[in-house]
Simulated scan of single mutants.
Amino acid sequence: MQLIDFTAEEIRRLLHQTLWHVQHAPLTVAAHSLWRRTHQTIAKRIHYKKRQRQALEAPP
């Protein structure tokens, strides 16, 4: 599965969590980032499939 690219917000969040807010282990932050990006990839795919299906079902 091809994950979506890192967004500027995701990079900012990762830097904040690992460098400036040392409350979580870097591995935990990386795992959460992977989970978020995987979830966003799946949501994007479902969104596009739904829109495509709606376009095909629309009356001419």
Rank of each mutant, 00 (worst) to 15 (best):
A58R: 05
T38W: 14
E9I: 11
D5N: 14
H21I: 01
R36Y: 05
I46W: 12
W20V: 03
K44N: 13
I46A: 11
R51V: 07
A31I: 09
A25G: 03
Q40F: 04
A30Q: 01
K50D: 09
L14W: 04
T7V: 03
K50I: 14
V29R: 00
L3S: 07
A30V: 04
A31P: 01
R45S: 15
W35M: 08
K44S: 14
I42T: 13
E57W: 11
A25H: 09
E9N: 12
S33A: 13
P59L: 11
S33P: 02
D5C: 10
T41A: 05
R36E: 03
A30C: 06
D5A: 14
L34M: 13
K49Q: 15
I11N: 07
R13S: 01
E9R: 11
Q40I: 04
I42D: 05
K49V: 15
A30Y: 01
K50R: 15
V22D: 07
A55Q: 14
L3I: 08
T28M: 04
E10V: 03
P26D: 01
H32E: 06
L34A: 12
H47L: 03
R13A: 02
R37K: 11
E57N: 12
H24P: 00
S33G: 10
A31S: 11
T7L: 02
R51E: 08
H16N: 05
V22H: 09
L27D: 08
W20P: 01
T38G: 05
Q17I: 05
V22C: 09
Q52A: 04
W35T: 09
F6Q: 05
L56C: 06
L14G: 00
R13N: 02
Q40S: 06
T28P: 00
H39R: 14
A58E: 05
T38C: 09
Y48P: 01
R45D: 11
Q52F: 03
A8K: 12
A55L: 13
T38H: 08
H24C: 08
A43D: 06
Q23K: 11
L34R: 08
H47Q: 10
K44D: 14
I11D: 08
W35F: 13
L19T: 10
H16E: 05
K49H: 15
H21F: 08
H47S: 04
R36D: 02
H32T: 06
F6T: 07
T38L: 10
A55S: 14
D5S: 14
H32P: 00
K49T: 15
Q52W: 03
R51F: 06
A43C: 05
T7E: 02
W20H: 07
I42E: 09
E9H: 11
T18P: 00
H16I: 04
K44H: 15
T18A: 00
R45N: 14
A30P: 00
Y48W: 15
L14D: 01
T28Y: 05
Y48C: 07
R36G: 00
I11T: 13
L34G: 04
R51D: 02
H24E: 14
Q23M: 09
L15F: 14
R12H: 15
A25S: 08
